[in-house]
Design a protein around this nucleic acid. Structure first.
Lengths: 297, 297
DNA sequence: CAGAGTTCATGCATTTTAGTATAGCGACCG
DNA sequence: CGGTCGCTATACTAAAATGCATGAACTCTG
């Protein structure tokens, strides 16, 4: 137990965890393999036990190393956030802003908003992360996020932009081929598009459709984007955002009375960043753009 | 914009922020002043602007440096957590566990629980932090926390241990001198002990005592511990935990019907740590100890 | 089964980084 | 007002970390 080790050891440690080899880690860090090797040696002699099992085709992490991984990941995310914050100090709107949104929102909604924003601020750089993880902001994986649950952390600044509505939809070609189900019970004879693994959000949805379980699905996909694409391709009936479906002339809503779920939608940002002009601008643009999207008929 | 800088620069940066001088930072880090100076120089040339204003009596951080501070603090907390996690790997219950509890809980309740625990596990080391900050766990400032609000982060493992009840109390000597107030309106003629700055928790309490405002207090202290001590010293009437007051033979409860507030109490831990025996043991001991304390007559 | 392409480990030279010593400047105190 | 003490900045030296070159072991492929 010497004095605290160099923080660089943790960076190397994480790289080795990710690359599963000293050589790979060295490449990704811009170092050489012996250096990486020495870093890991130092870390291991520091903690007093082995972190990796060496072999000729790489290093495989021990259980202990995996336990330490989340800390190292947090460190990496935080240094990245620090660099982002540092690289864009000042009153101008410039530098990187890291954005975390869901797949569907990131592909179908925000690009237009960002394009418009970028036109107004040519020095703005957007890093777009497609993720639903709620703690992205706390862990500094992102500066700004769009989330469908109300944020409860005090350190977060949230603005509600309306309610995204989910509903059942199908392509016109499918409806012409198979007809419209008259009721939920009528689903038995239809091709349903649904989830693969169950998540809390999905459980809420299922409460409305008690007859439906995972077994009824003819296509199972966890990606909402893939589900949406399947609906548009006429594969069958599935859930998607009502506001998005309206933009597609050939999508029709199915059983709007029986199945509807509103997702309160928020733009969320760390409170620390509210004094940052570039984050402020992106935050406001997102809030305005999403609100307009949600209100659109 | 070179390749990523050494993470050690961030550590030095934080030390300089804290010590407000290169020499002080060097002392706290076990480095020398020129080294620290070079680190700061490197960081400044990297971000492209000044982080500190040099003077003969130290360095004062610029606004930009203060903006970066929270990131550096997170880094420090995370490395510390990593070291803690690393230093206690294995099946035995040993090594440090960092505990974050409120002042009152930390002084009046937990010590007994910890003493008992330590007797059973002599290799356990407890780091006790007296804090109410809700994000201590996410930021890895602590491994385990006792909180009076329900945690909402998914990554947290929480166990409810009961409800801590708050009520008005006074020392017998005070009551003998001044009598018991007959109603809330009767408080005017009494010496009240209360808060200095208003917090969300206090606002909830105040709803029950609409007649009372900050101006009525004869003693204002933000420290609940100081308030409790003042009550015990016979200074006047104040709010404290009912379960704690019961242990003091000379404390009597005032207006139990009119003023009562239940705080749902949780022991909270990061989900990552549930596989760590030492954390598990502390978590369970806290849960059991607090539950027993709350149930005690 | 041999050769190409990986991997990690090790010895040595070099570069980088840290430490030592010192000078200069300002504040504080008697 | 002079002496002391603290701070930072700079030149020089020592140490430490890195890179290079190489060797040995293993995998994959033709």
């Amino acid at each position: 137990m010497n004095s605290e080790p160099s923080w660089d050891l943790y960076r190397t440690f994480l790289a080795v965890l990710r690359e599963q080899s000293l050589s790979g880690a060295a490449r990704s860090l811009g170092l050489t393999q012996p250096t990486v090797s020495r870093h890991i040696d130092a870390l291991e002699s520091l903690v007093g036990y082995d972190l990796f099992i060496r072999s000729q085709r790489g290093l495989s992490p021990t259980e202990a190393a995996e336990d330490l991984r989340p800390y190292a990941e947090t460190l990496a995310a935080t240094t990245a956030a620090l660099v982002r914050a540092a690289s864009s100090h000042g009153k101008e709107v410039r530098g990187p802003v890291r954005l975390s949104v869901s797949e569907v929102v990131g592909v179908e909604i925000v690009p237009a908003i960002l394009a418009d924003l970028r036109a107004r601020h040519p020095d703005l750089v957007i890093e777009l992360v497609l993720s639903d993880a709620v703690d992205d902001l706390i862990r500094r994986d992102a500066d700004i996020a769009v989330r469908m649950v109300e944020p409860t952390q005090e350190a977060l600044l949230a603005r509600r932009v309306g309610t995204i509505e989910l509903g059942l939809h199908a392509h016109r070609s499918y409806i012409e081929r198979r007809g419209v189900p008259a009721s939920l019970a009528d689903f038995r004879g239809h091709d349903l598009i649904g989830f693969d693994r169950e998540t809390p959000a999905i459980r809420a949805m299922l409460k409305q459709m008690r007859f439906i379980t995972r077994d009824h699905f003819a296509l199972r996909a966890d990606s909402n984007l893939a589900q949406f694409a399947a609906i548009k391709a006429g594969f069958g009936i599935g859930v998607c955002q009502v506001q998005l479906a309206r933009r597609e002339p050939d999508l029709v809503r199915v059983l709007p009375e029986e199945v509807s779920l509103g997702l309160p939608t928020y733009v969320v940002m760390h409170e620390d960043l509210k004094s940052s002009p570039r984050c402020r601008v992106v935050f406001d643009a997102l809030a305005a753009g999403l609100a307009a999207h949600i209100r659109a008929v």
